[in-house]
Design a protein around this nucleic acid. Structure first.
Length: 530
DNA sequence: CTAGGGTTAG
């Protein structure tokens, strides 16, 4: 009889864990009641978790409130329920309520409540919890310690984080990874590298931590070399996050050969049908100019999300396929996917590139009226670009003056670029004046204006501008480019003589220039200021 | 009832 009851309990728990809809949960709940389990704390806890997973925190809370004297583990379950639904304030309030009943938190309570503090940047509350952890003797708990490290490293308090890490009696790989991520997020790549080498054990999160550290700090070539090293050591396999980060680095570098190789690695590791990896592949191919491959990946994806569509639309728009971007947008709407503000960035920039001035305005209107998306400064920036590229410079300036948001530097730089194309000195000078207000020390702006002067032969103005630029005391850095040489991405600068593969790089560049001429593009040297 | 990572635009 007893074992029969036990079997029934196990069956109900497994049913609760498999609930996919609230309706299903209600059915299981009636079985809980029918079988006399409604006062079993263990079962009620499982029901609360099930409610939480179905985003029904109110139901969960009702059940919790009906428990006469909830145990600490019940409180913890309720914290987790709110936490999973991003109700972080609620977690902290509930914790205070628990304390008011003189219930002593345990090693399971602190991590979840601390995590809520981290999520809402409640450092003061986090510090109070830290005190309580110390007082109640949970500082030696590795779960608690790890979360405290995370609390401080998330708020740039890496030294406090490191101190807690050092004081932990047992530092497992998760604790090491937490510190590693702390350095990565604080931009200290060197500390990140040093720590990585010192780690007694490295798992996929460790590798991803280092790779992410490089990625966040713009060290894309290192992302790729580290990925190579990881595969060479052959101890851990890349996962979804690894592939996404590495592909994103390839995309930033325009490293198509490497990107294709990562694509092969992704297939080999069983990530062919993975949506996020697919999105990263689309982006990599699009940014490397391989639009056909980008479309192939997109078409092959069984599951697409908003980012898949956005990546495809933005990719098409920025690579001269504005009309295809607009078609893709119709297809997206037909597929029942709802566009967001980023979708419209793609649409509007596609219109700008194609010179579809009227369409641009009607899409902007549709965005506001049909989708209730409030335009951001970036959308207005696209409209300014749309007008300016079409040569409607006066209208662009008029739009800037009348739009409901304050113009930013990107917008004026956009205008300045078109002023060069259309040789309009008046608006170029206006744009420079504004740009200098934003960033008086940035020599790039002066270079742009000097190009306008140079183009139309106003040498006197050019000379005056050179003096003004020299007065800023800053020099424009030489242009830096990235190129794949033997499947390794290298950085090299204009007229760089130091690079070991310079011969090969210059040969490739000659080839590229030739190809580019072949397609009717006439390379031009910028008027450099010195 | 416990912890850690990532993608889209400008």
């Amino acid at each position: 009889m007893l074992s029969c009851q036990r079997l029934l309990q196990e069956r109900i728990i497994s049913l609760l864990q498999s609930c996919k809809t609230i309706k299903h949960l209600r059915q299981v709940q009636s079985q809980v009641t029918a079988n006399g389990f409604s006062r079993s704390e263990h079962i009620v806890q499982k029901v609360i978790v099930a409610c939480g997973l179905l985003k029904e925190t109110e139901c969960a809370r009702k059940l919790f409130d009906e428990i006469p004297v909830p145990s600490v583990s019940c409180w913890n379950t309720m914290f987790k329920c709110h936490y999973l639904n991003a109700e972080h304030r609620e977690v902290i309030i509930l914790f205070c309520l628990m304390r008011s009943f003189d219930i002593v938190p345990n090693g399971y309570s602190f991590p979840v409540v601390l995590k809520s503090c981290i999520k809402i940047n409640a450092l003061r509350e986090g510090k109070e919890l830290h005190c309580l952890v110390t007082k109640s003797g949970f500082a030696s708990n590795s779960f608690v310690g790890t979360t405290l490290v995370e609390l401080y490293s998330n708020r740039n308090l890496i030294e406090a984080a490191y101190k807690i890490f050092c004081e932990m009696p047992e530092r497992n790989v998760v604790a090491w990874n937490t510190v590693l991520n702390g350095y990565a997020n604080n931009g200290d790549v060197e500390a990140c590298e040093a720590l990585f080498e010192k780690m007694p054990e490295k798992n996929i999160f460790s590798w991803n931590g280092l790779i992410g550290g490089y990625a966040h700090n713009g060290r894309f070539p290192q992302v790729l070399t580290t990925f190579n090293r990881m595969l060479a050591e052959n101890k851990v396999k890349p996962n979804e996050a690894t592939l996404v980060m590495v592909l994103s680095a390839c995309a930033r570098l325009g490293a198509l050969v490497l990107g294709k190789w990562v694509h092969i690695q992704a297939k080999a590791n069983g990530y062919s049908g993975n949506c996020r990896v697919g999105n990263a592949l689309i982006d990599m191919y699009a940014k490397s100019g391989a639009m056909e491959s980008a479309i192939d990946v997109f078409r092959s994806m069984k599951r697409k999300d908003l980012i898949s569509w956005n990546t495809m639309i933005c990719g098409l728009a920025t690579h001269g396929h504005g009309a295809d971007a607009l078609n893709m947008f119709s297809e997206m709407k037909n597929a029942g996917e709802k566009p967001d503000s980023i979708t419209f960035i793609g649409i509007l920039s596609g219109c700008a590139h194609m010179g579809f001035v009227e369409d641009g305005f009607s899409y902007l209107k549709s965005m506001i009226d049909d989708y209730s998306i409030e335009p951001q400064i970036e959308h207005y920036g696209c409209i300014v670009d749309l007008l300016a590229r079409a040569g409607l410079l006066a209208q662009a300036v008029d739009f800037i003056v009348k739009m409901p948001k304050e113009a930013d530097a990107v917008m004026w730089a956009t205008l300045l670029a078109s002023c060069r194309v259309y040789k309009n000195v008046e608006f170029a000078e206006l744009a420079l004046e504004k740009l200098v207000e934003f960033d008086p020390k940035n020599p790039t702006n002066y270079v742009m204006l000097s190009n306008v002067y140079g183009d139309i032969g106003r040498w006197k103005d050019l000379a005056r501008l050179k003096v003004a630029t020299r007065d800023t005391g800053f020099r424009k850095l030489p242009g830096c480019s990235l190129i794949e040489v033997n499947d390794v991405v290298s950085e090299f600068y204009s007229l760089d003589e130091r690079h070991p593969d310079k011969e090969q790089i210059y040969e490739s560049l000659k080839g590229l220039t030739m190809l580019s001429r072949l397609y009717g593009n006439i390379p031009e040297g910028d008027t450099d200021i010195d």
